[in-house]
Design a protein around this nucleic acid. Sequence first.
DNA 1: GCAAAAGTGTTTGACGTACACCCATGG
DNA 2: CCATGGGTGTACGTCAAACACTTTTGC
Lengths: 244, 244
Amino acid sequence: MAGRSLKPIPKPDLADFKVGVDNAIFSVDTAQNRLLVLLVMRQEDPFLNQWSLPGTLVRQGESLEQAAYRILAEKIRVKNLYLEQLYTFGNPGRDPREAPDSYGVRYLSVSYFALVRFEEAELIADGVSGIAWYPVQQVPQLAFDHNQILAYGYRRLRNKLEYSPVAFDVLPEVFTLSDLYQLYTTVLGENFADYSNFRARLLKLGFLCDTGVKVSRGAGRPASLYRFDAEAFAPLKDKPLVFI
Amino acid sequence: MAGRSLKPIPKPDLADFKVGVDNAIFSVDTAQNRLLVLLVMRQEDPFLNQWSLPGTLVRQGESLEQAAYRILAEKIRVKNLYLEQLYTFGNPGRDPREAPDSYGVRYLSVSYFALVRFEEAELIADGVSGIAWYPVQQVPQLAFDHNQILAYGYRRLRNKLEYSPVAFDVLPEVFTLSDLYQLYTTVLGENFADYSNFRARLLKLGFLCDTGVKVSRGAGRPASLYRFDAEAFAPLKDKPLVFI
DNA sequence: GCAAAAGTGTTTGACGTACACCCATGG
DNA sequence: CCATGGGTGTACGTCAAACACTTTTGC
């Protein structure tokens, strides 16, 4: 009825989108007890010369996750990492490139959250663009709504640590229980069990096996090196766990 | 260097997107102890005449959440509900409308998760389209990747129940503790504390207040009607809670 | 009175919390 | 030998699990 032509009635005013992927990439510098997030200096408009989360626009034939891995690989070289989707921000007007009359293309951002091993993460500086680890407590004003994305990622990181074994994706193959404890305190603060109880709980879970090898770091009794036993952990997967 | 023209170097092959919002809308039929999800019969290609989650494409000037509320309001009339973003699916090829040569527009889906009160939810049947509550255990093959979205939403629902007060968004103003317990068992199965312990734990949390009013349903001792006290709950917000 | 549903209480064991204390090394 | 960090043990309180039992209704 009252169609404009022979073709089916056109959909009312659908928005056209470009889709971006923005990564909140965290790492833990246990030596300095700092939780870091990777920021890059924008090389183009909008927000030229302002810090932002590393991001990219999704290309033809590329999945969202592929885009997330691509942007990550462009910025750092890393062997071990944990990555998962975070949240999707798509309010109209969130990107200045959208025409002010709200006509034209919109920019949607699918954010990803990543945790990488600080010691092995090698930043790829191309000599032009700025790129740096920032302590999460000291990040400046970021481009777009990236501060919001970062806050979201930070919250997710803290939750993940409490009930999933992400820490082991980012620790070396072998590590001391102090290393593990320090990672937790750096991310979560001091507001949880002391080392003694943390140690007892983790060991009782049964997926950390003592390699027997001792390592001495400066003064004090040498620590045992432990290994995360993926097989022993498998049955606990998807079970409600408490690492706190 | 080697730019094609005076204009800045064009971005390599960015994908163009339409963005859809798909809702996994759940409700609990406590009378029959069934967890239901809302399905609609598709009226157009692709997947004509196949069941799917209610969805829509995002319009100009419309936020993702607005689109989620719009599609929900088109299908059911409901006063109380809980809604949150679920996950974003954007793999190339997830929608048959995408040209097979992977050139042309892509269809991305931002999924939302909703919980509504079954008794007050009034389905809007326009006489043409099919719309129905399906027990989650009996949903048929759905259009697109909607079975995957549903599985994702179902998992989220179970998690939410355990550590957040979503149940009270979907219970009547006053309710018996049995009502509450039945809602939990319907969603989570029987694999948690018995009624006695459930009751004791919830009451100790202190945000359920006894109205004093009794209600009798058939045989058996009449039950007290309780009310969720939002003020008493406020300090517990964002704290790790266990409703199990 | 009896079945059915609501509500109370009690026992037990597991576990988190907060400590005190022993062990092994470097300087 | 002592400071430093690693590692072990214990005492206490809290709470989840299981279950027995009482109360109040309909029939």
